[in-house]
């Protein structure tokens, strides 16, 4: 399995917010054991999906100068499940950002109803060596499809 837990970015306001999509397919490897008779996307992976998009949003907002690494999560509320065929909408809002770190709040939504909320996700920013910036930029730009939601 590839560890890309969001498929595309459909809305992005630098330094403020982003909206992404994660499609859940029956063929995902994590559904083999979780669970055999009732396939459900593990909630920690939804947290990871939000964290990946959060990192993308921060790194893209600061023009690929810093790489965001998650260090702390607070206030997770799980209110629903994601099953194959669902399309998760990932909402990210940047609460605070400076050159050392950033905090965001995040929410995963299916068909307008929230299934997982994170009150506070904290990232530390590491400066990217200039030679790596272009590579990260190419990789990150590809995920940004900006199709109408």
């Amino acid at each position: 399995m590839r560890f890309y837990l969001f498929d595309r970015v459909i809305d992005f306001i630098p330094g403020e917010s982003s909206i992404g999509i994660k499609n859940i397919s029956s063929e995902e490897d994590f559904l083999i054991e979780h669970y055999d008779r009732l396939p459900v996307m593990p909630s920690p992976l939804i947290v990871e999906a939000l964290a990946q998009l959060g990192g993308w949003t921060i790194t893209t907002s600061n023009d690929y100068k810093y790489l965001a690494v998650m260090v702390m999560i607070k206030d997770i509320e799980i209110t629903g499940n994601a099953v194959p065929g669902d399309q998760l909408t990932l909402n990210i809002k940047i609460e605070n950002i400076n050159e050392y770190g950033a905090t965001i709040s995040a929410e995963a939504v299916i068909n307008d109803s929230s299934i997982l909320k994170i009150g506070n996700l904290t990232y530390v920013l590491y400066e990217l060596p200039a030679k790596d910036r272009e590579e990260v930029k190419v990789k990150y730009t590809k995920l940004n499809k900006m199709v109408s939601a």
Binding site: M1, R2, F3, Y4, L5, F6, D7, K22, N23, I24, S25, E27, E28, D29, P84, G85, D86, Q87, K142
Partner: peptide
């Protein structure tokens, strides 16, 4: 029927590596 296409699928490693 609905088929969701997602980045985690292994076949995207080779089909294709850049896109």
């Amino acid at each position: 029927g609905i088929k969701n296409i997602t980045s985690t699928e292994d076949y995207f490693n080779d089909h294709f590596s850049l896109r």
